[in-house]
């Protein structure tokens, strides 16, 4: 039996642990935090499983590998909502919608009455949209908690510690899934700051993630159920500080207000800020040096790409394959 230590219990580490267990490995999971919480970037994720929408700006592997995500999360957590995603733009920014349509696939154009039927609470505000019917979303914290529970129930041992992967690898096969925390060991990893809000607004009901296109302030809003919404997310080059900026709040809230003025009455439950770990091309990487495998760089695609990344790490370990996102240069 293979013994593998996974360091980092965010979305990457938990997915790797799950796929390793599925192949029969004995897994030890190490994290600085005893419980899931705001220290993990995935805690603040939108939870959109929207590979086709991401194709607007992401490269081909993201679209292709991301298509594994919805089925994987459904199988492992039963926390997936399959209602598609809807993309709209204010009338004056219609050219953004044209551009988005040209860069993506897997959608159909929807007119005002169709938008009204899909999302009655957007009624009358948008005359045209793009409906990506096959896409899905999940509630990240619920999904992570379920995944973690299943991993522990299936025998993974959890250790609360601030472990150094390189040191640990001297004692056995180790997978470093620490995300941005691994920056000191991955000099080409950078932080991309994201700011997001959780709102409570029982007056508004949405069934699926909505993307509001805007040349300066693109926004998405993901329903969490029970009148709770996640509103995100800024994308700013640079490692996040501890606080969200006033500008980000203004932009996010004004965009929500444009979707439905009832958001003006929403209560702000949480304000989040974190650094997404990313490589220069915003595509994740697997790197191996002896007993140490590092899987990192999920960028804004944590829930979307972690299942594929975990599969590739596991195939590397069990089948000795060379995954497509594996770098030749070992670090």
């Amino acid at each position: 039996m293979k013994n593998v230590t996974v360091i980092g219990a965010g979305v990457a580490g938990l997915c790797v642990a799950r796929t390793l267990l599925d192949r029969g490995a004995r897994v030890t999971l190490i994290d600085r935090q005893r419980d899931l919480g705001p220290a993990a970037c995935s805690w603040w994720a939108g939870g959109m499983l929207a590979p086709f929408c991401e194709g607007e700006s992401a490269e081909e592997p993201v679209v292709r590998l991301g298509q594994e995500a919805a089925d994987w999360w459904e199988a492992k957590t039963q926390a997936v909502h399959r209602h598609g995603s809807l993309v709209v733009s204010p009338a004056r920014d219609r050219s953004e919608l044209t551009r988005f349509a040209r860069r993506t696939s897997g959608f159909r154009e929807v007119s005002a009455p169709e938008i009204d039927a899909l999302e009655p609470d957007l009624g009358g505000r948008f005359s045209k949209g793009l409906f990506f019917e096959s896409e899905a979303h999940l509630a990240p914290r619920e999904a992570l908690q379920r995944l973690r529970a299943s991993v522990l129930a299936d025998g993974a041992e959890f250790v609360e510690a601030d472990a150094d992967p390189a040191d640990h690898a001297t004692r056995g096969l180790t997978v470093d899934c620490r995300g941005f925390q691994a920056r000191a060991d991955l000099p080409d990893l950078r932080g991309v700051k994201g700011e997001m809000l959780v709102l409570s607004c029982p007056d508004v009901s949405l069934s699926r993630p909505i993307r509001l296109l805007h040349p300066r302030i693109p926004l998405y809003i993901v329903p969490r159920g029970d009148g709770v919404f996640m509103l995100g997310a800024t994308m700013i080059e640079g490692q996040a500080g501890r606080h969200v900026t006033a500008r980000a709040l203004l932009e996010l809230l004004s965009a929500a207000y444009a979707l439905n003025p009832a958001f003006g009455e929403a209560e702000v439950l949480e304000i989040g800020v974190d650094s997404r770990p990313a490589f220069a091309d915003n595509i994740p990487r697997i790197r191996q040096s002896g007993n140490l495998i590092r899987a990192n760089g999920l960028y804004r695609h944590g829930f979307l790409l972690a299942p594929a990344l975990a599969r590739m790490v596991t195939e590397r370990i069990f089948d000795n394959t060379t995954p497509e996102v594996m770098d030749e240069t070992a670090t």
Binding site: S57, E59, K193, I236, G238, G241, T245, A280, D281, N282
Partner: peptide, 29 residues
């Protein structure tokens, strides 16, 4: 879309000047 694409665009452009915004990409720290 990504820093890699930015760098590639500069290589292909041969541009002699790069403009860079500070305000948006910084914050107090």
């Amino acid at each position: 879309p990504s820093p890699a694409i930015l760098a590639d665009a500069f290589r292909r452009s041969g541009a002699s000047v790069a403009t860079v915004s500070l305000r948006r990409e910084s914050g107090q720290d």
